[in-house]
Amino acid sequence: MKLTIAVTGLNNTDNPGPGIPVIRGIRESEHIEARIIGLAYENLEPGVYMPNMIDKTYMIPYPSSGTEAYLERIEEIHQKDPIDLIIPNLDAELYTFMKAEPRLRELGIKTFLPTQEQFEERHKANLDAFGKKYDIKVPKSITLTSHGDIQKIKDHFDYPVLVKGKFYDAYIAYNSDQVANHFNKISAKWGLPIIIQEFIKGTEVNVVALGDGQGNTIAAVPMRKLFITDKGKAWSGITLNDEEMIRITNDLIERTKWRGGMELEMIKTNKNEYYMIEINPRIPAWVYLAVGAGQNIPEALVKLAIGEKVEPYTNYQIGKMFIRYSWDLLGDIQEFEQLSIFGEIEK
């Protein structure tokens, strides 16, 4: 089956986007003969320069320049180089793509994304309600909207607690002075409110999964990070044999009728309880571990997107590991020139 698939998230840096791992999954598929179009925001995204990954890259504007400008560029590319399917891989794009889904469909471009409702309700600030609605344990949390609220913490929690920003940043605090300190730092950067979350002791475990939008789990592979970079990203991880994680995932996908890729971040306590701490509405950068363990999630997502029936994966190899490494790729300034001046480059 021949398809032209456009992929974003080519920033294969030390805080990698999922683009290249997704492309690797598609390239390894025996059913899909793909022409891969890379969509790059910056002229130094490593994926653009990697051999055998992308057939042609186009620069696109950031979603922050507005849906209009963004879609105009996609349409312009589509006219030159017709696209069958786009797989957006970055959080900041999802909103734009979900909103643009009908327009893309009209153009003949398919996507396979969660619905806006699914996207909204799993937001960090809504986690409490999400847990209640879907019967999932989540850490207790309260929001602080002023410095004076810090006194409220002791009515709800024992220290330590996690102090989190609206979008990013999380710190542990062992007393109210430390909370005050983090409160000031985070609120200066991300504004209010600040989220105070129960600190759950345990091991962080993750699942990469794919839902078909009908309630079926097409793929699910649990993993534990073995080593984390100073940016908090997995440097190495290993697949786990954990039926409870699979059960939680199946249950969540069945109840939410989740459509598309997702990553669940959970804490497993020493009493074997699982607390959901975050739900990412897209494929994570470590998805290639799942491919290697026997569940080609990018391939399955492509098939679902074009309306093919996909049999759910039920097995994966336990104890499969990934280790990230860095590699100095050499290039010539001509490639950089080509991309910077014309906004596109053929590999």
Binding site: I333, F336, E337, S340, I341, F342
Partner: peptide
């Protein structure tokens, strides 16, 4: 300056478009 209007300054390593 290349014919595309790309200017590379090898003294500084900076690139420009014209």
């Amino acid at each position: 300056v290349s014919e595309n209007g790309f200017l590379f300054d090898p003294n500084s390593g900076e690139s420009y478009s014209l």
